[in-house]
Design a binder for these strands. Structure first.
Length: 509
RNA sequence: GGGGCUGUAGCUCAAUUGGCAGAGCAACGGGCUUUUAACCCGGAGGUCGUGGGUUCGAUUCCCACCGGCCCCA
């Protein structure tokens, strides 16, 4: 097949047709044609000439008359190609036209007898040859792995996939706009760092040759951004790729996109207000609504409102409700341990009440949080970068936002006391165990920065990929990342193609 | 880490109680001037994921391996 299409191409170039033209003067997108002429009756002529360009998706060939469905980024349009009206050079091209070819078409805007808006083509130009066969036209490309692996084909044949990434672009654009509007300075902090810090996660390691040092790809942007607040940038944010050397599943990709923001003189209550404004604004900008359809695990799509105010509930109240009896930081550890064990939640020797309560929350309560919910006041042990709660020092001023059982945001009143911060870092060692791969050496530069004084600050981390999933109804993160991380494989087409293309290359030289 | 499912033509999928491998679309040849996933006729296309084992015979049964999907931890 490739051989035949290459032969077509050679045949055309021998007839002095430019088969790889450098440009084409398009006058209209297919959408513009539809918008300007969509109202026409059947069998109409407009006398208006237009030039459109796109990929050949369908061909209905009647011999002397050919209908072509042309597809560009904005939609589809029919080409009406009658042998009687086609310029001679274009007529030569027609028999060599294949599904998938990029063409330009010039002619009158008309409708057919059946009323289909069309271009009555008199000039047809090959813009680029499709040498490889496109996926099947009915079912397209279904296999989820193939769709991620060959994203270019997925985008050609699956319009809903194109739409997903258009929404993703709108989400990122609106996030950026929301933070700029509020006076946040957008910054870029290092991806290659000398130590991975700011989260509990395994980093990717790499090596810098000239400096001969180990480098780690960032697992968070948090510590750098807070150093900028120390430096006097009172509002900063970064939308950036984060890398965590961990497993891949429906909500985790080794590289993903996170927004982090920090604002001086604010606490976590202010950050809640911010999130309540930003999330609905982004939803409106990206989808036109603040209600999304979300499929329950075992049921049909249920509408989910993103309109504020969001529910606010403390972790202790939530866990108490879940357990059916009051749970506090003073609840005896063995009682908490029994609660966990009787519900199949594993705990470890030496965990304090806060750690066990967090585990109960994470395993039992969080998955059931359907409507947008701020869970507030996290135990100190699981929040090493958050300020102690102003009324209960064993808790922190921290919240996470849950929607449809998934964590979307994590935020706190930032810890700015360098003494407390250092002791928290050093306690992590005893908590995680000295050989835990998620344990990182203390970031000295960060602690020293705090020693110069960081104003009270409210910080936020927001998962961009998960937000896109929510707004597009996708349940797998790989559906919202253009090129998700995959095990490399050899494309079975490659051997054939390489041989054929190489032969053609040899003929040319 | 545990469990379940899965890999067959370029794509989407069948079939086989172990006996010549099937369809639609795409591609190829032919026909057709109003189609909408056009239609009609014809021919072609396969390392049945890889490697072993059992068997007269394995795509099918068994084992291992390589991918992938889902659920649980």
């Amino acid at each position: 097949m490739v051989r035949k299409r290459l032969a077509d191409l050679e045949g055309l170039s021998e007839r002095e047709v430019d088969v790889w033209p450098a440009r084409f003067d398009r006058t209209h997108s297919t959408r513009e044609i539809r918008e300007s002429y969509g109202h026409l009756e059947a069998d109409a002529r407009t006398g208006q000439t237009a030039a459109v360009a796109g990929r050949v998706r369908l061909v209905r060939d009647f011999g002397r008359l050919v209908f072509i469905t042309l597809s560009d980024q904005t939609g589809d349009l029919q080409l009406f190609v009658s042998g009687d009206h086609l310029a001679a050079e274009s007529a030569e091209l027609l028999p060599h036209l294949d599904l998938g070819d990029w063409v330009g078409a010039t002619g009158e805007v008309i409708t057919t007898r059946r009323g289909e808006l069309s271009i009555g083509v008199d000039q047809l130009t090959l813009l680029a040859k499709c040498l490889a066969p496109l996926p099947e036209k009915w079912k397209g490309l279904r296999d989820v792995e193939q769709r991620s692996r060959h994203r270019h084909l997925d985008l050609v044949v699956n319009p809903e996939s194109r739409q997903t990434f258009e929404i993703r672009s709108a989400v990122v654009a609106e996030l950026r706009s929301q933070f700029h509007q509020r006076g946040f300075l957008e910054v870029d902090t290092p991806i290659l760092t000398s130590r991975a810090a700011g989260a509990a996660a395994r980093p990717f390691r790499t090596h810098h040759n000239a400096l001969d040092i180990e480098l780690y790809m960032r697992i968070a942007t948090e510590l750098y951004l807070k150093r900028l607040v120390v430096g006097g940038f009172e509002r900063v944010f970064e939308i950036g790729r984060i890398f965590r050397n961990e497993g891949v599943d429906s909500s985790h990709n080794p590289e993903f996109t996170m927004l982090e923001s920090y604002q001086a003189f604010a606490d976590y209550r202010d950050v809640m207000d911010l999130v309540e404004e930003v999330i609905p604004a982004v939803a409106r900008a990206a989808t036109g609504a603040t209600v999304v359809g979300r499929e329950a695990a075992d049921g049909p799509s249920v509408p989910l409102s993103l309109e504020p105010p969001f529910r606010k509930v403390s972790m202790l109240d939530l866990v108490s409700g879940q357990m059916g009896e009051e749970v506090t930081l003073d609840t005896e550890p063995h009682i908490l341990g029994e609660m966990a064990a009787s519900r199949g939640v594993e705990t470890r020797e030496g965990w304090g009440a806060g750690r066990v309560i967090y585990e109960l929350f994470d395993r039992l309560s969080a998955p059931g949080l359907w409507e947008p919910t701020f869970v507030v006041d996290y135990p100190l042990e699981v929040s090493p970068l958050a300020r102690r709660h102003r009324r209960e020092p064993r808790l922190t001023e921290r919240f996470e936002l849950f929607i449809a059982g998934v964590e979307f945001a994590n935020a706190f009143s930032e810890l700015n006391d360098p003494v407390d911060q250092l002791s928290r870092f050093e306690n992590q060692a005893s908590l995680l165990g000295a050989d835990d791969p998620e344990l990182h050496p203390v970031d000295e530069e960060f602690v020293l920065a705090l020693a110069y004084g960081m104003p009270p600050t409210g910080g936020l981390g927001l998962g961009v990929d998960r937000l896109v999933m929510l707004l597009t109804g996708r349940t797998h993160i790989r559906d919202v990342i253009l090129f998700p991380t995959l095990r490399p494989t050899e494309n079975p087409l490659w051997k054939t193609y390489r041989r054929l293309l190489a032969r053609r290359f040899a003929d040319l030289s």
